[in-house]
Simulated assay, not measured.
Amino acid sequence: MSNAAPESSKPSPRTVAPTVETVLAFVNTRADGSGRRELFEDGRSFAAWLAERDEFDGESVVTDADAAVARELRDALVTVLLAHSGDEEGLGEPLLHAERHLRRVGSLYPLAAVVTADGAELASPQTGVPGAFGTVLAAVTTLAQGSDWGRIKACRNPPCHFGFFDRTRNGAGLYCSTGCGSQVSMRKHRQRQRHGSGAPSKA
């Protein structure tokens, strides 16, 4: 994964928690114009995606309306992850709208505390599609309470916005891959040439 930090910011090995995998699997289901297809296009495609994931109940009846809810939840999460990357276009009103949407979703799919002798965790008390949404929210909430939440980001290269876990030592990663980082650098270079200025612009 690439980043915009100095060369001294070398990647460091980090263990990715299952909650990270759950969140990234959910947000990385959108089409981006570079070959990735929309996995929540309708009820059938959403059901197929759920069936492939062990943490969800793949036997649920899924409708097109469920797929629409999934897209809205996913897009709100992507906006939040873009904020973690410092993407200026996603800040302000877009971020406020995403956060308001997530609060509404949280009230529709409440979570329950599961306490054992080994500790406690959040889980959805619901089944089916509501349980799937609750599982995503439980993973997000667990991450948000820990130090890794800010490292779950969305690539700043539009229209990629692919979710990734920033493994850099100082948490300065901006792009999901070196290819996306190179594309942004090239666009900035061409923009400076068009404007006849050699001054660098912000990422």
Results as ranks from 00 to 15, higher is better:
residue 151 R to Y: 06
residue 108 L to A: 15
residue 129 V to G: 02
residue 190 R to I: 04
residue 159 P to T: 10
residue 126 Q to N: 12
residue 161 H to D: 03
residue 79 T to C: 13
residue 201 S to C: 02
residue 76 A to R: 07
residue 41 E to M: 11
residue 94 P to V: 03
residue 13 P to Y: 05
residue 54 D to R: 10
residue 162 F to W: 15
residue 110 P to M: 05
residue 47 A to C: 09
residue 130 P to K: 05
residue 191 Q to W: 04
residue 87 D to A: 14
residue 114 V to E: 15
residue 150 G to V: 08
residue 2 S to V: 13
residue 84 H to E: 14
residue 98 A to N: 10
residue 43 G to V: 00
residue 156 R to A: 15
residue 148 D to K: 03
residue 15 T to V: 12
residue 148 D to C: 09
residue 38 E to W: 02
residue 175 Y to M: 08
residue 34 S to C: 08
residue 198 G to R: 10
residue 162 F to S: 13
residue 200 P to H: 02
residue 140 V to S: 03
residue 151 R to C: 11
residue 180 C to N: 03
residue 125 P to S: 02
residue 22 T to G: 07
residue 75 D to K: 06
residue 63 T to N: 00
residue 131 G to C: 00
residue 64 D to T: 04
residue 199 A to K: 12
residue 79 T to E: 14
residue 142 T to C: 01
residue 15 T to W: 05
residue 178 T to V: 14
residue 78 V to T: 13
residue 145 Q to D: 11
residue 66 D to Q: 06
residue 144 A to L: 07
residue 25 A to H: 12
residue 115 V to H: 07
residue 121 E to V: 08
residue 169 R to N: 10
residue 25 A to L: 08
residue 47 A to F: 05
residue 175 Y to D: 13
residue 53 R to T: 15
residue 72 E to L: 10
residue 39 L to C: 08
residue 15 T to R: 14
residue 184 V to I: 13
residue 177 S to I: 05
residue 70 A to G: 05
residue 164 F to N: 02
residue 90 G to Y: 00
residue 84 H to W: 08
residue 153 K to C: 02
residue 175 Y to W: 13
residue 31 A to V: 13
residue 57 D to Q: 13
residue 1 M to S: 14
residue 183 Q to H: 12
residue 62 V to D: 01
residue 60 S to M: 12
residue 26 F to Y: 08
residue 112 A to W: 09
residue 110 P to G: 10
residue 42 D to C: 02
residue 18 P to L: 06
residue 118 D to Q: 12
residue 193 Q to G: 09
residue 174 L to F: 04
residue 105 V to G: 01
residue 93 E to P: 13
residue 75 D to T: 09
residue 187 R to E: 08
residue 82 L to G: 12
residue 99 E to W: 01
residue 41 E to P: 02
residue 148 D to I: 07
residue 21 E to D: 15
residue 181 G to L: 06
residue 159 P to H: 00
residue 179 G to E: 09
residue 163 G to I: 10
residue 177 S to M: 10
residue 63 T to I: 04
